[in-house]
Design a protein around this nucleic acid. Structure first.
Lengths: 160, 160
DNA sequence: GTTAATGCAAAGCATTTGCACACGT
DNA sequence: ACGTGTGCAAATGCTTTGCATTAAC
C-alpha cells in the first residue's frame, strides 16, 4: 500500500468517525475493517469480495454485516454503489445511442435523447481502453417523486 | 398503441428476421412475441415483467425462454441491456464524481477521471427530472482483453 | 432429417429478514 | 443501562443449467 493510499484510507476513517457521530451510529470494528478494505483497494469489489478479503482478519465476521455496513456507507456518503453487468437486468428495444435518468426513490428509468450528450468528447486516457460505446446516467428524482420526497439520502457529493 | 410505435415494432420484427437468417437462428413464435412486447413498451422491463405480460398470449411460455431469448436479442443487437439499481452491486470508496469503463469481455471496471466529462452540459429536457448527479459509462475492451478477443458480440450500434 | 429452441424442474448465487445475543456509548 | 449492531440460519428472488421434448428449416 503506497503512501497516497494510506492517506486516503486515513482520511476516510476520519470522515467515518465524523459521520457516525453526527448520525449517532456506533464505531464498530466491522465498520472500520470494511471501510479500510474498501478504501485501500483500487478495484470495484462486490460485497462478497470484501467479505472474502477480511473474514479472516475480523473474528466471526458475517456476510450479512458486510452487506448492511456497505449500505450504511452509501447512505452516509462514504462509498458509492455502481451497478455491475452481471446483475439483474432491464431491457429495451431501442438500440440507438441514448441516455438514462434513474430515480433514486422509485427506481424508474427514463430515456434521455440529446445530441450534445451523444457527442461529448471522449477523453483519450492512459488506460488504453478500446471504447465501443458510452452512455450518460443521471440520478435524481423523477417528476412524481420530487414532490413527495424531501431527501433521499445523506450523501454530500463533491467533497472528500 | 399509436402509429409511431406500430411502425417501430414492425421494423424491429423485420430486422429480427434478417438477423436470424444471417445467423441461422429459428424464427419462433416465442421470439416474435417477446420482441413485439419489448418493442411496443416505453418502459425498461425486466425479463420477468415481459414474461408476466405475455405468458397468457403464448401457449405454455416459460420464464427460462424469456431470459434466453432476451440474451439472444442483445447478442443480435436487437435490444440493449441496462443495469438496474436493485442489482448485484459493486462498491468503491471514491465518492468524488468520476466515470467508468466496463470491459465487455472480462467485466473489469476502470475509473476514468476527466474534467471535460465532469462538466458536460446537462440538457434540460421535458421529463422534469430533478438531477442530483450523473456519470458517464463507457463499454469496450480493456487493455488485457483487446489483444485476446476478436469480437465480443454481433451488435451494430447506431442503426435501426 | 438435422439442428436448434423450448419447457420443466432443480440448482445456484446474491441479497434480505427475523430474532437472540453482544457491543459501543 | 440503553439502544444499536451483529451473527446465524433460513427465506427470498433472480437467473442459469441439464435434459428430454418439440419445433424450425
Amino acid at each position: 500500500m503506497d503512501e497516497k493510499t494510506e492517506i486516503f484510507v486515513a482520511e476516510k476513517l476520519r470522515l467515518m468517525k465524523e459521520r457516525c457521530r453526527i448520525h449517532k451510529l456506533s464505531l464498530t470494528a466491522q465498520r472500520r475493517a470494511i471501510l479500510e478494505n474498501l478504501a485501500s483497494r483500487k478495484d470495484h469489489p462486490t460485497a462478497d469480495q470484501i467479505y472474502g478479503a477480511i473474514q479472516g482478519r475480523v473474528n466471526g465476521l458475517s456476510r450479512t454485516t458486510v452487506y448492511r455496513v456497505l449500505e450504511t456507507f452509501v447512505q452516509l456518503g462514504l462509498a458509492s454503489k455502481i451497478c455491475s453487468p452481471e446483475a439483474k437486468s432491464r431491457f429495451e428495444a431501442d438500440t440507438k445511442r441514448h441516455h438514462h435518468a434513474v430515480c433514486n426513490h422509485c427506481e424508474a428509468v427514463v430515456d434521455i435523447y440529446s445530441d450534445s450528450l451523444d457527442n461529448i468528447d471522449i477523453p483519450v486516457d492512459g488506460t488504453c481502453f478500446d471504447i465501443h460505446d458510452f452512455s450518460v446516467s443521471f440520478t435524481g428524482l423523477c417528476s412524481n417523486c420530487r414532490d413527495t420526497v424531501k431527501r433521499v439520502h445523506i450523501s454530500d457529493k463533491g467533497e472528500a
